[in-house]
Nucleic acid binder design. Structure first.
Length: 197
DNA sequence: CGTGTTTGACCGGCGC
DNA sequence: GCGCCGGTCAAACACG
């Protein structure tokens, strides 16, 4: 919580980057996002432009976004401990042996939007909501509903600028985007058909 | 009835 | 050791 001014500075930086990134699937500088799919974003193997810290190829903006996630608290909340935070409460799941995960890629971005829920093509199930300190808005916790997928995301509206929603993704989907596949299937079939000649 | 949300309780990490 | 706080669980609930 110390150094709030620093936080503010970086936040404003980030805001600029997020809204100007050409590859950010959520490049939503204005209210209306495409209700349907974001093709440009989803056609990447990494639908969110998640930044692998080890990857060199990432664009500058993405790297900076990742830095932001690593180094900042979002309203005093999001910490990036080196274990990637496996902790978190929850009853006896510890004994069940929830394996410590290596640090997972995290990616946060801001969108200027009225609705908190972004249609990113994946299905999410909300599993928690908490009021966080220094913020008048609660933080919502979502998990990908796909059985084998353990991707999570946090959504929180900024108290300083209520038109901005901060979304933090943790992990990478290990399955194709359902909506994308749904949309692509007829096209792929046609391609297969045509390629026989 | 299946799926997703709400919400209070619980847990672990961290600072003091 | 204690209290605060963020993250998660899971029962109850809502909705199609």
């Amino acid at each position: 919580m110390e150094g709030e001014t620093g936080t503010n500075n970086q936040f404003s930086n980030y805001s600029f980057m997020a809204s100007s990134s050409p590859c950010n699937p959520y490049n939503l500088s204005s209210q209306q996002q495409e209700p349907g799919l974001d093709w440009e974003g989803m056609l990447f193997s990494n639908p969110y432009g998640l930044v692998d810290p080890n990857a060199q190829q990432g664009q500058q903006q993405q790297q900076q976004q990742q830095q932001y996630v690593d180094s900042l608290d979002i309203n005093g909340g999001l910490r990036n401990d080196q274990e990637g935070h496996n902790s978190g409460g929850g009853k006896e799941k510890k004994s069940g042996g929830r394996v410590k995960k290596a640090s997972r890629p995290r990616f946060a971005f801001q969108t200027r939007t009225d609705n908190d829920i972004l249609d990113d093509g994946y299905r999410w199930r909300k599993y928690g909501q908490k009021a966080v300190k220094n913020s008048s808005y609660p933080r919502s916790y979502y998990r990908c509903t796909h059985h084998t997928c353990d991707v999570k995301k946090q959504v929180q509206r900024l108290s300083k600028d209520t038109s901005i929603v901060v979304t933090t993704y943790e992990g990478v989907h290990n399955h194709p985007c359902e909506k994308l596949m749904e949309a692509l299937t007829p096209i792929l079939k046609q391609i297969q058909f045509l390629s026989r000649f």
